[in-house]
């Protein structure tokens, strides 16, 4: 898709390359370097106003804008899909202000900006995964005081997080937290993995790609360098588990991917499909067909 496109690349030169001015990018890169040096630690940065509402990925966009180069290929996903509103508009934004090549193929991308998912395909060394984070502080729900949560991080006092998990088990009989499931990074810092489903938590452990997290409203950046230990919190008698489904993907038949439930009619009809659209499409192109899939549909397109 992003085949050899010999430069010169073009962008809307009314803007500086990748929208942010160079000093801002340097400031954000310094924050990123610090974040990589102290895995899981939330580094404050001077978040800028972006041409996008808070909550739509302003943090992720600023991180992407600071690390992207003219030769990079960008992939943007929202809930695993390349074709949802948020993903489409952010991808178009970078096409316009940075003139970079974009792709839907996970393995072809240098930078993948994501909201709520980690791609199913294993990422490789050299790739960068940028998360959009609404609330970087995992302790916030239990401890509203910022000064106090900073101390708790500083002194590694994380007992309170288990109170949250205790409450889950007491109320539901199992740990009912399914997204934004808290993790310990590098055995030191408690970290919120942004609202990805806990299904994706194990993928963060020892990932070959660099993971960067940007929270625009809260103005925090944190990171997990490649090959870093990431452990999901649990109890000895209630170990961490990921979601599982009785069905496979209705289109491609995958049993190892995160499935979205799609309501088909008002009589209880539903189907489960891969949330990672590229992964699903790839499988169908390879000839896999699910119970409701149509063989050969990918070749026809």
């Amino acid at each position: 898709m992003s085949a050899a496109m010999p430069a010169p690349v073009q962008w809307d030169t009314a803007y500086n390359f990748a929208y942010l001015d160079e000093q801002t990018k340097r400031m954000i890169r310094r924050a990123i370097l610090k974040a990589v040096a102290v895995p899981g630690y939330q580094v404050p940065f001077g978040g800028r106003e972006m041409p996008l509402a808070y909550g739509w990925g302003t943090g992720g966009i600023q991180v992407t804008a600071s690390v992207i180069g003219p030769d990079d290929t960008l992939k943007v996903i929202d809930q695993g899909a390349d074709d949802t509103t948020n993903a489409v508009s952010i991808r178009r934004f970078f096409e316009r202000v940075a003139g970079v090549a974009t792709t839907e193929a996970t393995e072809e991308a240098d930078i993948i900006q994501t909201r709520h998912r980690i791609p199913e395909a294993e990422l490789a060394e050299g790739q960068v995964l940028v998360y959009q984070v609404p609330q970087p502080e995992p302790l916030r729900r239990l401890e509203p005081r910022e000064a106090e949560t900073r101390k708790m991080h500083g002194y590694a006092e994380y007992g309170l997080m288990h109170v949250n998990l205790y409450e889950d088990i007491a109320r539901y009989g199992h740990i009912a937290t399914t997204y934004g499931y808290p993790v310990m990074v590098n055995g030191r810092y408690l970290m919120s993995p942004s609202p990805i489903p806990k299904f994706d938590n194990p993928k963060m452990r020892d990932m070959k790609a660099l993971q960067l997290f940007g929270a625009g409203r809260e103005k925090r950046i944190y990171a997990i360098p490649p090959y870093t230990s990431v452990k999901s919190l649990d109890f000895e008698d209630h170990p961490f588990t990921v979601q599982s489904w009785d069905d496979c993907c209705a289109l491609c038949g995958a049993t190892d991917s995160y499935l979205d439930e799609v309501i088909l009619d008002d009589r209880g009809g539903k189907m489960f499909v891969c949330s990672d659209t590229h992964y699903c499409g790839q499988r169908r192109a390879d000839g896999h067909v699910g119970p409701q899939g149509v063989p050969g549909v990918e070749e026809a397109r």
Partner: peptide, 27 residues
């Protein structure tokens, strides 16, 4: 007290703060 945490969670908080990680024991 933590008013939005159950009674059992309130009592168990200190145990978890000093490193207990076995739900049944804490309960």
């Amino acid at each position: 007290l933590r008013m939005d945490v159950s009674a059992g969670g309130n009592v168990g908080e200190r145990l978890m703060a000093i490193g207990q990680r076995h739900y049944a024991n804490i309960r």
